[in-house]
Design a protein around this nucleic acid. Structure first.
Ligand SMILES: [Zn+2]
Ligand SMILES: [Zn+2]
Ligand SMILES: [Zn+2]
Ligand SMILES: [Zn+2]
Lengths: 160, 160
DNA sequence: CTTGACCTTGGATTAAACTCCAAGGTTTAT
DNA sequence: ATAAACCTTGGAGTTTAATCCAAGGTCAAG
């Protein structure tokens, strides 16, 4: 049996977070003291662990609510239902990674084309790329071995 | 010279988005008609393109505001200032990718251990992993060649 | 019997980037 | 002249996952 502060501390979260989870139907203490204090049982703590583990693999709170409703009524759900949720999430995560990888590639190209020196940004290749073309301009700049500097490189590894 | 609807349409965004950008200091039309309609010049349109390109490589609107203030006053900024912003963003993006990769690996393991069949979720390895252990339990399940099914696999590729 | 640590509630706020709405004014086409 | 399409403003709502606050109640120690 834990009071809210104890449970929060042992799980490394905030008491407000526990109240927030309760308000959103994820975890309610199974008892209250006469004076109204929340009292969490070992089962409640286990449920919190379930929530925290699901969060740790990337599920949102509303997805966790769905997982919990399955967990509480396993007999009426199939493996396929659970696996579908995991696979849907996996797809979501993969898509987000793909988007971020596109960002990463573009940013890397922008970074690689700029000398990063102390000279004026008036001819900075990054700004130029954002002004007037897509990143493919920078890609061409990088690909060509015959490229010239957009301004005198101040650091040795300027690739513009 | 474009009215708000025209500019929005040509750039594939919403008129509300343009008003939002204006309210947040990113892009104001250089003129208004006597009746108060926004009128965007070619320069305004170019500025919008700058914004959209910066968005496309992952910058947030407040970061774009910073980039725009450099863009408008290039002479007083150095290449290094611009490159630093790109490199900071790059680091951010890489860190987020790393987090999502951790999610992806965990979810993949969870998915791989579950048969995904129509049988009851009462012994589903995914729920078990979330109940009582971290993903390493599933990892052990997967690694061990001597593992047994948590229930009779219904689909051929059940790995539990 | 008072101090300090803990607990209660409801509601406000945060960040990001829009999106939608109401109530009304303007332009354009028929 | 009137309908359709467009524009204006201010403000509210959305999503996610909390975090913070105020005003007050409870409990254990000294
Ligand atoms: Zn350079
Ligand atoms: Zn540069
Ligand atoms: Zn199975
Ligand atoms: Zn399963």
């Amino acid at each position: 049996m834990y009071r809210i502060g104890e449970l929060a501390k042992t799980c490394g979260i905030n008491t407000d977070t526990l109240r927030f989870y309760e308000k959103h139907g994820l975890l309610a203490p199974s008892k209250r003291t006469v004076s109204g204090y929340r009292v969490y049982s070992a089962d409640d703590a286990a449920r919190l662990q379930f929530i925290l583990r699901a969060k740790a693999v990337g599920f949102s709170l509303s997805e966790i609510a769905d997982l919990l409703s399955i967990e509480l009524d396993k007999a009426n759900w199939a493996c396929s239902d659970v696996k579908t949720m995991v696979d849907d999430k996996l797809l979501q995560v993969k898509q987000r990674i793909a988007e971020l990888e596109r960002f990463r590639r573009s940013l890397q190209i922008l970074s690689d084309t700029c000398c990063g020196g102390p000279a004026s940004a008036e001819h900075c290749s990054i700004l130029q790329a954002l002004e007037s073309c897509d990143v493919s301009r920078s890609e061409r700049l990088l690909d060509k071995e015959t490229h010239t500097h957009h301004h005198a490189p101040v650091q040795g590894d300027c690739k513009c």
